[in-house]
Each structure stands twice: as structure tokens, then as C-alpha cells.
Amino acid sequence: MQLDQPVKPLVRLSGVWKRFGKLEVLRGIDLDVNEGATVAIIGPSGSGKSTLVRCLNHLEPIQDGAIEIDGFLITPRGVEKSGRLLGQREVAKFRTLLGMVFQQFNLFPHLTVLGNIIEAPTGVLGRDRAAVTEEAMDLLAKVNLADKANVYPARLSGGQQQRAAIVRSLIMHPKIMLFDEPTSALDPELIGEVLKVIGELAIKGRTSIIVTHELAFARDIASKIVFMDAGLIVEEGPPDKLLTSPKLDRTRAFIARIL
């Protein structure tokens, strides 16, 4: 048994700072995410959880520190590979490495559900339309939306929209999935169906980072839970440990408030 076998992290943040003007949203974040791991980020609102996730696919540039993702390096200068700064087109390509699910779903309202899903694989990756459509219908069936393929998003419930948005990300075959409070905009009775799709389909065999307020869900699926407060990671550890016997009062108070 080799317990100390080194696992190279797929995502590594070192000393990441993010400022909006004078507001310091991330104040030196260090975090490793191993390949295949599921990391849940919890913490009070305004603690920088969403911003952290948005820095990973460079939707937000960082002001200091570095993020390594699968051979790419994000620095305050932009996205680099082998020491070379990438152009707009290459950054776009880099982003396909990560799938992202937003709090507000962000489906394209002028396209049908199927149109939403096949837009990027055909347009960005240039994959064959027929094959992509077949895969899309397959995935839609898995999330119970097969009958909604030709419906416009406005006709769907929030839970249905979010499930479609998850399929839209998955069909790009991302190496890493990012979830930014995927159930926070949903009515309570719709949360379960979305968590089920995330747990049983989206994070299976994929490195995932999930910002969530659903602590029970986080305990079930996460290999590591990270507690953030005021732009810092204040505590991290395996779910059982962090949720049942946190080291810090801040963490304990937050968990007590949510549960």
C-alpha cells in the first residue's frame, strides 16, 4: 500500500488575489484540486466563492498569484501555456476545458433546448451535427427532458432550465465542471431534481468544483469541503470532519446557521 503516492493536482491556485477597484474579493487563495476530486465550496454570501470559480475559466482576470489548470497557467497577464501568453481565440479554446453551470441558468432564449445544447459542440468544436444531436437527445433523456428538446427555454421551469444547462455543458466533454450556486435560484421543490442530475450524471468521473449552500448534498458528493470567509479559505477538509467537528468557531457558526 502506497499511501503517500503523489497525486498531481489538476487545478492549483497559489496566492490568488482578486480586486474590484478597492474591494478585495479574494485575498490570497491557495487551493489544490486533484484529478477526479469533487470540491464543494461553502461560506457566507460575499465571501468570494463565486468569484473564485469565475477566475478558474478566466471570466474574471486575477490581480495577483497564479492558477495552474492542466498545463495552462492563469496569471494577472492572462492565460499562458508554456510561457507564452494566449490570444483571444486560444483563451476561448482553453475555456472548453471547463464546463460551467450558472446560478441563473443562462440558457439562450432565442434557441430551443436542443439548439442551446448543440450550438457550441457544432460551432466551437466543429463536431458533426447529426452525431451531436444524437448525443444531445441521449443526454436529454437521462435528465428527463427528452420531450422538451424543441421547446424554448422560457416555457420550462427553473429546474428544467438548469438540467438543460447542465446538458449544454456536459456535451462539450469538459475535463472540469464548475457549478456556481446551481440551485440558489430555484424554488425549493425543484432543487432535488437538479442535485440528482449533478450527483448522478454531471460529476461522475470528472473533476468538479461546486459552490453551494446545500450542505447535506455537499457531504454526500464532495471529497473535500472548503469553507470561505471574507476572501480567504479559512478551513478545509473531508466532509465528515468539516461539517461535524469544524476547528474554527466561524465555520461552526456558519454551519449551524445553514442547517
Binding site: 476561448a92 475555456r95 464546463g99 450558472f102 440558457l107 439562450f108 450550438e119 460551432g123 455543458s169 462539450m172
Partner: peptide
């Protein structure tokens, strides 16, 4: 703005997301 971010997250360039979305 969420429309633009979703497009970017899917790997679309500025030109493509303007044209298609």
C-alpha cells in the same frame, strides 16, 4: 450579461458570440 458569460464559458470567441447569441 449572463448570456455573454455562458457563451464564453462554452468557448465562443467574441465574434462568434456576437454573431450567434
Amino acid at each position: 450579461k449572463g448570456q455573454i458569460e455562458a457563451s464564453q464559458a462554452l468557448g465562443m470567441t467574441y465574434q462568434r458570440l456576437m454573431r450567434r447569441i
